[in-house]
Design a protein around this nucleic acid. Structure first.
Lengths: 195, 195
DNA sequence: TGTACATCAGTGAACGCGCGTTCACTGATGTAC
DNA sequence: TGTACATCAGTGAACGCGCGTTCACTGATGTAC
């Protein structure tokens, strides 16, 4: 079969997109190559025309999901008046919608504990993507100078990621929403109030 | 072979202890029954004399590790003068030692994202253990009344768990320590200062 | 005191299954001549 | 214009391996008689 010139590149992107969602939903070991390809109406054999192995796909998918997250949060910050960018970022991150939808949400909240067990390839891609993520979002943080903004970014996002992961682990909906709400108030007062 | 009357119970406890460490180190799917039993100089067949299946062991191991964590933190709080219990809890939780040793650390930091994918058995055991954990540690929290203390507990511990998980995902030691230190200052000022 | 039997924690072979990866093959199209 | 060949994204059978679980068996001791 012959395809349009950018067909291969498109398939590759489709695989990365599906994988980034599946890995966030099910973890790195929770989804197989065959199942992944089946979602895209493809068979598992063709996978290796696009990626050296599963771990390389994981690396790409992880980086892509962090970038996607960065874009989502920048967009959220840009909506409405410009003084409250960080408040909107916090509201979006700690929203019930984000909590209910790990597959399209923050990969740190979904995958952080398994990252140390992944290959150097994955960690390199992750660190690179995290740098870029930090660079994009630090400007919304309070603090004197780039270094302090960067430190505040890390503290806030690590805290929110943990909050989201823990909220998702709580079955009782009232308690889950309560945690999200309390955390939202807390981080907003701590970071957004000082803007 | 005949063993002392409490032998079976002891073996059971040894399996739970080894499992609680292995699961925190490697995740629920990162360690097999055979490997686990081998650590204890046993073979995999005997496992099913003690547990219905792997998922039931996970439930017990998870509960045990949360209880162990509660004991560790209560002990840390009790050391030294009584005014700074919470400061000591935060220092212990966000210490480089805890960060470097996931196997004997907080199971929320190590396992939270995979909990929603586990069975009802696991989730029930987890929720029960979390209740008890919250009850033991809430009394060190600031806040008017039990409910507010409880909310503060959740916000603080979810935030610290995320911080630990993210710190562990960062390879660069300087950046990792920086995050732990910044977070420690932040949470201490936010919670311990108001005690 | 002696004997036959029950008990049961632990053993290790075996089973079934899923999964990552490999590989010979397909078949429509572009290209060389 | 026509023909033979190369290309290569995708197919699906097959391989090897690990893992959860099962099961017949072991063998030292307690117990019934």
């Amino acid at each position: 079969v012959r395809y349009p010139p950018d067909h291969k590149e498109q398939t590759r992107e489709r695989i990365i997109g599906a994988a980034s969602r599946s890995f966030r939903r099910s973890g790195g070991e929770g989804i197989g190559i065959a199942e992944l390809m089946k979602d895209l109406q493809l068979t598992h054999g063709g996978f290796y025309r696009h990626f050296e192995n599963k771990e390389h796909l994981f690396a790409e998918a992880l980086a892509a999901s962090l970038e996607e997250m960065g874009t989502m949060l920048e967009r959220a910050a840009a909506a409405g008046d410009r003084a409250h960018g960080l408040t909107r970022i916090i509201d979006t991150y700690l929203s019930p919608a984000h909590c209910a939808n790990p597959a399209e949400g923050c990969p740190v909240a979904a995958l952080a504990p398994e990252l140390p067990r992944h290959s150097a390839t994955v960690k390199k891609a992750y660190h690179r993507a995290l740098q870029s993520y930090a660079a994009r979002l630090s400007r919304f943080m309070p603090g004197e100078g780039a270094a302090e903004k960067r430190r505040n970014f890390h503290v806030l996002f690590a805290g929110m990621a943990g909050t989201l992961a823990m909220a998702r682990s709580i079955d009782d909906e009232t308690a889950r929403r309560q945690l999200l709400r309390s955390a939202k108030e807390f981080y907003t007062a701590a970071f957004s109030g000082r803007c």
